[in-house]
Structures are given as C-alpha cells and as structure tokens.
Design a protein around this nucleic acid. Structure first.
Lengths: 208, 208
DNA sequence: CTCCTAACAGGTCAATCGTCCTGTTTTAAA
DNA sequence: TTTAAAACAGGACGATTGACCTGTTAGGAG
C-alpha cells in the first residue's frame, strides 16, 4: 500500500486498548467481552492488538494493574487520606458514587468486584492481582480506623475487621444495586453504615 | 439402532440437567459454562437437551427459579423462621456457611450473587427473576426485624434498610471470600455484624 | 544516508460456541 | 392394536471465539 498517514504511537494505542477493555470488562464482564469487540471499539488492528497483548490474559492483567488498581486508589484510598476520619470519608465516597450513578441511569457495579467475580474462578494469577488490590483497600481503611483510634476520635473498634465489614458493605450494596439496577441499596447501606459508626465516634470516655 | 434398554424419564433428565447446570453456573459462571459441558457432565444427549431447554436462556431461567430460589429459601428464609430473632438466625447462618466452607478448601460464593453478577448485564428477564429472589430475601429479613421490634426484642432499628445492610454484608463478604479464597472475610463480618446488632437487642428502655 | 527493530495492517486458523435438524423409540391415550 | 405426541439419539450447522501468521511501515541508532 502507499504510505498513508500512519503514525506509530505504541503508548497511545496501548492506552486505547486498555481503556476500552476496562470499560467493557466492567460493564459486560471479562469473559463476555471478546477481543474482536475491543479491537473494533478501540479502532485497533489485529496485528497491533497481538503485538501489545499476545493473549487475552495479558490484557486482563494489564486492566487490573493499570486501571482497576487506580480506580480503587482514586475512589477510596485518596479520599481516606484527605478526610478527617474514616466515617467522613466513607460517607463522602458513598455520596459521590450515588451522585454519579443517579443521572447515569444504569449501574455497572464496582470495577474491582466485577472483575473479581468472573475472573477469580478461572485464572489464579488475575485472582492474586485482584487480591493485592483488595489488600491495599483493606490496608488503607484499616490504617485510617487505627489512626482514628490513636487520635481519640474513635473508641471500641477493631480496625481490621471493621475495615473488612465496610468493604463487604460497599461491595455487597454495589452488587445489589447492579442486580436490581437501582441505587436504593447504596442509599440505605450508606445510612445504616453511618448510623453504626456514629456511636463509636462520640467524644465520650468509655465509662465515666 | 437396536432397541437398547432406554427408558424415558423426562423429569429425571430435566433434573439432572438443571442440577448439573446449577453446579457449573455457581462455580464457573453462567457465561463461562458451555452447553456441551453441561450435556457431558449430565450424560444427556444433544437431542434431549434441546427438547427440555431449546436455548441456554431457558436453562438459566430454570436454574434461577428452581435452584437459586430454593437455595436462598433454605439458607436464609427457613432459618429466619426457626430462630427466636434475627441476630440469632444471622449468626447461625454465617456459622453454617463458614463451617461448610472450611473443610471444602474452595469458596465458590453465594449462588444468587454469582448468578446476578454475570447475568444481570445481559438478560433483563433473568435479572428480574433474580431481583424477585433478592426481594423475597429482603422481605423475610425485614419482616423478622419488624417482628423483633414489635415483640420488644429490638429497639431503634429500621427493618427495611437494616435488612438491606445485612444482605449487602453477606453478599460482599462472600464475594471477598471467593476472590481471596479465604473464609476470613466471612468470619470477621460475622463478628462485626453480631457486635453492631447486639446493642439494639439489649433489653433496655430507650431513655430511662 | 543505511539498517534494524518495534509497531502496525490485514487476514487466517482450529476450536468452540449455541442452536437446530432428522430420525428413532418410548409411552400413554383411543 | 393403532396412533399421535412426547422423549430421546446423534450429528451438523453457521457464527464467533482467542490466537497467530506473513508482510509492511515507522522511527530511532549508527
């Protein structure tokens, strides 16, 4: 062929593929999404696709490490660092998610949870990569509860298991919201979670 | 072919197909499971399969309505009816699940949640069928909390949103357990859930 | 400039997907 | 016993899957 205006842009092509794949994996699922569909949506040739990602597994790993990881970082870990205490951050995060979902009309669910659910049974390597993200999430949440305890903001809490509970609530509420296509579960869970954390954050000495 | 010892057993064949499909759908996912795989595991010919379930969707619907529904009924709704109050039932249920999972070595997750996660985005009819099960689950849990409130066992709770929270915790903890292949999330969530329900079930009059 | 490798194009591959077909046998009603 | 429908057997269908192939071009090193 004659030399048309093609330009090599390996980083850009890779980014387009990973972005498109991330979108599709979160919305439809990893298994339900075909390589051809990603190629077409990303406007990438089969050769370029094979060059950057020789197998679907490699693309899945890249999506997990480059996108899902950052999504959790932005959605959870950074707000946790910014807010004064864990309950404030949690309430803010739930509020943001609900606010984003309300006008959108459809609930696609938590990226981390979605990926974990249909990838975990099939690929140990992806499962471990997702496990690392869960661990980072849990670690950040747990550390915040621990800090609240140390600073006297909170009392009578067990940071680690409470962090697990919060993650479970968020993941579960997201799953319900996705299944029923309704943010109601998130709204209710947010209120209940705030109510159950409140007494632990009252500025009272435990007995006196 | 010569007439070998074949016997028509429509109910039995159908049951074998649905049982096998239920197992596979829960363990590997609906999309990840092929019709051929189910046929082979259930020892059913393609003709028999097509006769009972002309399309995969029909099999999915049957699994949801005949198996997933009963699983939730047995695991959650019946224990709720048997126990004195909601916290007792919840703790019993979590304990049973943890006890069953511990020796098994692998965590396949909550059947309802697993099905909902990879089917909801693709098939509205299945999504609605799963939504009905969620509604029944929520209804039973909510009714129990309401009864506890009426009988004076509990105080200061909102049955409906608290039921949503419990379902979210269970689903989320199951998802974490599946993702990490570790029952730890269930154990921790069980303890935290019991601890947060306890103060509501103290036999104290709210103010004096 | 030359040259070499990464980047990319476009098509092909076997395998598997879900579906459906024709033909045979069982079973119960007439 | 006759008969029609349900139940079942076994295979074939086109479509789609993920993987991979050969050939071409871009772009930096020398």
């Amino acid at each position: 062929m004659i030399g048309n205006g093609r330009t090599n842009d390996p980083q850009g092509v890779r980014r387009r593929i990973v972005d498109t794949a991330y979108d599709a994996f979160v919305k439809q699922g990893y298994i339900a999404t075909g390589m051809l569909e990603i190629r077409e949506k990303a406007s990438v040739s089969g050769g370029a696709m094979a060059h950057h990602f020789p197998a679907k597994r490699a693309l899945g790993l890249a999506v997990i490490r480059d996108r899902v990881s950052h999504a959790v970082q932005q959605t959870w870990i950074e707000p946790l660092d910014r807010c004064v205490d864990a309950p404030a951050a949690i309430d803010l995060i739930f509020g943001d998610i609900i606010g984003e979902l309300a006008p959108k009309g459809s609930v696609s669910g938590c990226p981390l949870n979605n990926m974990a659910m249909d990838v975990s049974p099939h690929d140990p390597e992806m499962r471990l990569a997702l496990g690392d993200i869960f661990a980072a999430w849990h670690g950040a949440l747990s550390a915040k509860f621990q800090a609240d305890l140390a600073s006297g903001r909170a009392s009578n809490i067990q940071p680690s298991s409470l962090a697990t509970l919060v993650i479970a609530i968020y993941s579960g509420a997201m799953a319900m919201a996705k299944a029923r296509q309704d943010v109601g579960a998130l709204v209710e869970s947010r209120a209940e979670l705030a109510a159950l954390l409140a007494p632990k954050y009252r500025r009272v000495t435990p007995a006196g």
